[in-house]
Amino acid sequence: MEKQYKTIGEDAWKNNVEKVNAELFIFTYGSLVVQLVKDYEDYAAVNKQLDKMGYNIGVRLVDDIMARTSLERCSGFTATAEVISKVGFKLFLNVAPSVASWSADGKEFSLIVDDNPLNDFCELPPKAVQDGLWYSNVLCGVIRGALEMMQMQTEVEFVRDVLRGDDTSEIRVRLLRMLDEEVPASDD
């Protein structure tokens, strides 16, 4: 199944995505983070804003992924992890993090991001590292928002980041509960 998702992600990247100049995207994101730091002057608040922005993006990305790939709803959390890694990340960032460190109950996993494009051309000041800035925290929000649209309430957080001196970047995804599908209120 993993190879199938990898192929779907690569095909979608090659054929169904309008490409944006990577450097422009990276510098624009960096400018956004710098502006948030200036506006909030508190790294915890910046992390929260990045997560919130990512969540709003993730809510909309699910439909885009479905439209571009013709994927059907995932059969379980394991398949969902593979789709996030091999299709979602590939489609939008042209990277495919590895899925690792599953919990015994199958409700937690890590995405190991060896090459995070958002980190290119970036170096965090020591104070930002010390005070807890997670520069790419927008990715956590994107994952959380996308999974919520798939009826999965999750907790998503960075646990390691190369910009903070770690050897790799790791995002931890924890399934809290499956959400009930709600029928929209009628227009009567």
Results as ranks from 00 to 15, higher is better:
40 Y>D: 01
10 E>F: 01
73 R>N: 09
165 G>A: 05
137 N>C: 03
66 M>C: 04
133 L>K: 12
42 D>A: 12
83 V>Y: 04
63 D>N: 15
159 V>I: 15
119 N>E: 14
152 M>P: 00
29 Y>I: 12
92 F>K: 05
95 V>K: 04
163 L>D: 05
62 V>R: 12
111 L>A: 07
85 S>N: 01
1 M>C: 04
165 G>R: 00
176 L>V: 15
81 A>I: 10
151 Q>D: 15
138 V>I: 15
183 V>L: 15
173 V>G: 11
146 A>E: 04
182 E>F: 04
115 D>L: 02
14 K>C: 02
168 T>P: 00
121 F>M: 07
141 G>M: 02
136 S>G: 12
112 I>F: 00
80 T>P: 02
180 D>L: 14
106 G>I: 03
16 N>Y: 05
109 F>A: 01
145 G>Y: 04
54 G>I: 11
165 G>F: 06
105 D>E: 10
41 E>A: 15
147 L>A: 04
97 P>T: 09
183 V>S: 14
131 D>I: 03
68 R>L: 15
182 E>V: 14
91 L>N: 08
10 E>Y: 02
20 V>E: 10
82 E>M: 09
73 R>Y: 09
86 K>G: 00
53 M>Q: 13
38 K>Y: 14
81 A>R: 07
95 V>E: 07
21 N>I: 12
81 A>D: 07
87 V>S: 02
108 E>N: 09
95 V>L: 09
154 T>F: 04
157 E>L: 10
55 Y>W: 09
178 M>N: 14
9 G>D: 03
24 L>M: 11
137 N>V: 00
111 L>G: 03
125 P>V: 01
48 K>C: 06
68 R>I: 05
169 S>H: 04
75 S>V: 15
129 V>G: 08
42 D>E: 08
40 Y>Q: 07
12 A>L: 05
157 E>Q: 15
147 L>V: 06
127 K>R: 13
58 G>N: 14
26 I>K: 10
22 A>G: 00
126 P>C: 06
37 V>N: 09
141 G>S: 04
181 E>Q: 10
135 Y>G: 09
113 V>E: 11
154 T>M: 09
132 G>T: 07
113 V>W: 07
89 F>R: 02
157 E>Y: 11
102 W>C: 07
94 N>E: 08
87 V>I: 05
139 L>V: 03
137 N>E: 06
186 S>T: 01
163 L>F: 12
124 L>Q: 05
109 F>M: 03
32 L>Q: 11
50 L>E: 05
